[in-house]
Amino acid sequence: MKDFLALCVTRFEALEQELNQLDAATGDGDHGATILKGLRAAAAFDDAPEKAFRKAAGGASGSLFAQIIAALDRAADGAPLGAALSQAADRIAMLGQAKPGDKTMLDALIPAAAATTLDAAAQAAAKGRDATRDMPAKRGRAKYVEGAGVGHIDAGATSVAALLAIFAEWRRM
């Protein structure tokens, strides 16, 4: 898992500005920096990477994305990916009071959890991410911007899709 998180740090360093720009259209513009801060902390610790992520990232993103880090950690240890992602999605839905179609990270995570293979999960997450472009936001800061963010892809869904694509690549290494 440590080498997966190190790979995530490298990839999210390249994605940071794009994620910040996506977030600036519908939020406060710091999503990429926040996720990268959490990933760097998670990669630096041997135990409980989700706790290190949550503490370093802070705020809502820290708590929500820590659920995904924990799910991927369980999957890396042999747990079925779909079950781990479903559990993360349930916790995120509860913590964030969100549901599919609200233009959140769940729009990428829930389809990924239903996929039968790791590559299919990454593809489903990407498709879910892309679908957020046409959704009006019903949760978070995006619901307050003009048009409720329609026309913009959700930064959180983009991060979920990237994490799953990196995880699939890492598992093939």
Rank of each mutant, 00 (worst) to 15 (best):
F4D: 00
L5N: 01
A6N: 09
L7C: 06
L7T: 00
L7V: 00
V9I: 05
E13T: 08
E13K: 05
Q21M: 01
L22R: 07
D23A: 07
A24Q: 04
A25E: 15
T26Y: 12
G29Y: 06
D30N: 13
H31G: 09
A33W: 01
I35M: 15
L39H: 02
L39E: 12
R40P: 10
R40N: 07
A41P: 05
A43T: 06
A43I: 02
A43H: 00
A44G: 04
A44Y: 00
A44M: 01
D46V: 10
D46P: 11
A48M: 01
R54Q: 09
R54H: 07
G59P: 07
A60N: 12
S61L: 10
S63Q: 13
F65K: 02
F65D: 08
Q67G: 02
I68F: 09
A70F: 08
A70N: 05
A70C: 08
L72C: 02
D73E: 15
R74G: 00
A76T: 11
D77S: 15
G78I: 01
A79K: 03
A79R: 01
P80E: 14
G82E: 05
A83L: 11
L85Q: 05
Q87R: 06
Q87T: 11
A88Q: 02
A93W: 07
L95A: 06
Q97K: 15
A98L: 11
P100R: 04
G101M: 07
T104F: 12
D107I: 07
A108V: 08
P111M: 12
P111I: 02
A112L: 10
A113P: 05
A114S: 15
A120Q: 12
A120R: 04
A124V: 10
A125E: 09
D130S: 11
D130L: 10
A131R: 03
R133K: 13
G140A: 13
Y144T: 13
E146S: 14
A148T: 06
G151S: 09
I153M: 04
A155T: 02
A155Y: 09
T158L: 06
A161K: 01
A162Q: 14
L163M: 15
I166R: 00
F167K: 00
R172P: 03
M173Q: 14
M173A: 15
